[in-house]
Every structure is written in C-alpha cells, then in structure tokens.
C-alpha cells in the first residue's frame, strides 16, 4: 500500500518535470536557455520515473522473491546513472558547438566568451 502511493507520487513528479522541460524547450528564446530547461528538467523527471520503477520492482521482489526483479532494480539504476552523466556531457557539447557555430545568446547582458575570443 505504501509502495503504491510512493510509485504514484514518483511517477507524478517525473511527469510534471518532464512536461516542464518540454514547455521550457518550446518557450525560451535561444538555444542556451532551451538547453537549461531540457537538460535539468528532463534528467530530474526521468530519474523520478526510474525511481518509480525501482520502487515497484522492490515491492514485487519482497512479495515474490523472484530474482528477475533484482535484475530490474540494478539495470534501472545503471540506466539512471548512464542517463544523468550522458545528459550533462551532451548538453555541454551542444552548448560549446552552438557557440562555435556563431549562435549569440539572445537578451544576454554579457558574453565573456566572445570577448575572450577562444
């Protein structure tokens, strides 16, 4: 019963943050601010969706002690870490490439990187 409530809460949080990430992606003015929204919010939302799956698998494992649920738990946690690390590195790569491609940050008050001229 506690597990069910916990799963519902986790899935709801995950859905809300994923939706906010996509709304930010549609709403913000330039590529850097869009990266802010998409990277942070979808990483956080997906982590919560995965936590919902992990809680489900733990409750099933405690109920049935079927060892395939153990595999579900570890593999979901591995996917969680892979997603968190690769999202951060990927957003870093996109931001750097966008700046080298000549995208100006819109509404920006300062651009020290263009002044440094790297």
């Amino acid at each position: 019963m506690i597990a069910d409530t916990l799963i519902l809460i986790f899935l709801a949080i995950g859905l809300v943050f994923n939706a906010l990430g996509v709304i930010g992606l549609l709403r913000f003015p330039d590529v850097y601010t869009r990266l802010h929204a998409s990277t942070k919010a979808t990483t956080f939302g997906s982590i919560f969706l995965f936590l919902g799956v992990v809680v489900f698998a733990i409750s099933q494992y405690l109920g049935t002690s079927d060892s395939q649920y153990l595999m579900v738990i570890t593999h979901t946690i591995i996917a969680m870490f892979a997603l968190a690390i690769t999202n951060a590195a990927g957003s870093h790569a996109i931001a750097r490439a966008a700046h080298r491609n000549g995208q100006k940050p819109q509404q920006a008050v300062v651009d020290k990187l263009a002044e440094a001229g790297l």
């Binding site: 906010l20 990430g21 930010g24 709403r27 850097y32 802010h36 942070k40 700046h99 940050p105 008050v109």
Partner: peptide, 24 residues
C-alpha cells in the same frame, strides 16, 4: 543542489523571468 536547480528551472519556465549571460 539538483533539486533546487529543478525548482529554479520550473519557476523560470512558468514566469519567463530571465536575464541570461555568459560569464567567466
């Protein structure tokens, strides 16, 4: 910090109050 970051982004998405810039 990750949790705070997400509530921060949620606030910026909903209100649209931004003042961006690239700093060193």
């Amino acid at each position: 910090e990750l949790t705070k970051a997400n509530f921060d982004v949620a606030y910026r998405v909903i209100t649209g109050r931004i003042r961006p810039g690239i700093i060193r």
